[in-house]
Design a protein around this nucleic acid. Structure first.
Lengths: 197, 197
DNA sequence: CGGTATTCATACAGGTCAGTGTAGGCAGGC
DNA sequence: GCCTGCCTACACTGACCTGTATGAATACCG
């Protein structure tokens, strides 16, 4: 399932639209960017945008889906080749570099969720939930591979640390939040009740 | 400083506006609610709204300021009369009951931050940052009172757990996130390196 | 060479947005 | 009795919103 990336099947205009969406939806917020603005900054007509994506809602879901893929790839790449316990901590380091490079203003999925509170059937909600569930599941697999007990609880706790660090760093002027969260993750991993047999 | 609450000085219309704002801004999102809708649902004319608040931006800041006060009062009330270490854990329980009662869709301040990405000078940003900083500072005072070392790090880590649990519970279908975060906080508090002399 | 897909340019519809203006009603205090 | 503060009612502006319509140019592919 899901073997080949479908990205290259996009038409040039569709690619330009998604690239532009990736920048300005994140920087300015989904509801602050109109389709006229988006099409203009992508160097494309609004007609093309609607021919390619059908609606703003579909485009928003596509933007978040692509960002989700990039985020997962970033994490996987940054943690590869280490042992499982080190990988758990490396996820936090990967989050730090991801925020440096692509996410200084906080989590795009959290922002999207807030912007779509009044549209509960919006197709983006599945993408948003999927991103959060994936991260927790990633932690679950890693702590199982590391031989820890209570994998369910530990995975949720690690995911909470990571989400919270993102919030604090981006909107409370706390640049060290991610590093502190990493240290807390280390404590949780080394807690006696969590050591496997 | 800040001795008496100024709430009772509001005119009846202003109070109705703020009450309505507290409901529909949170439920639907700030940018999804227009001033026409807000005035109509408050049973007030738009003229009155502008006479009382001057602009939507000011009203948004007032809405968040009032929510911030309610949140702080809720936390303080729920944790009072316990010893310091128990209070740290009680903050997590207080968050759980707060979300049950008033915040099932996630953190209003995080949502507001996302909605105002494109308005960096918006007066609400100070309120948002203030709420996050207050929470971390609250933890800092509690862990100091509990005789823990490394108060700065521990406070940030506890705040991250709490923020992250809010995110996971509200937008990842993880109702136990807050309880799990409480357990993690307990582990961090009992970690040998954090015990005071 | 003909057909299909992609894209351009432009104009328009119908609605909502924040914010202002004008005019008047009503109550409490001096 | 008058003035001030609070409020209603309603019309209006100019900008922006999503989405559609019309018509034509370009390029690839059989």
């Amino acid at each position: 399932m899901n073997t080949a990336p479908q990205v290259s099947q996009l038409t040039p205009a569709a690619r330009a639209i998604l690239d532009t969406a990736g920048r300005i939806f994140y920087d300015r917020g989904i509801s602050a960017v109109g389709v006229d603005t988006l099409a203009a900054e992508a160097g494309v007509t609004k007609k093309t945008l609607y021919d390619q994506f059908g609606s703003k809602a579909t485009l928003v879901a596509a933007y978040l889906g692509e960002r989700d893929r990039h985020f997962r790839d970033w994490i996987e790449r940054e943690i590869q080749g280490k042992d499982a316990e080190t990988q758990v901590l490396a996820v936090f380091d990967a989050l730090g570099s991801w925020m440096d490079a692509h996410s200084p203003k906080g989590c795009a999925f959290v922002h999207a969720h807030g912007a779509l509170l009044n549209a509960p059937d919006h197709p983006a909600h599945n993408v948003i939930r999927g991103e959060k569930v994936w991260l927790r599941t990633k932690f679950e697999h890693l702590v199982r591979a590391a031989g820890r007990d209570q994998q369910q609880s530990l995975a949720t706790q690690l995911a909470a640390l990571l989400e919270g660090a993102t919030v604090l760093r981006s909107l409370a002027d706390m640049p060290d939040a991610v590093d502190e969260a990493r240290d807390a993750a280390d404590v949780l991993l080394d807690s006696p009740s969590r050591e496997g047999s």
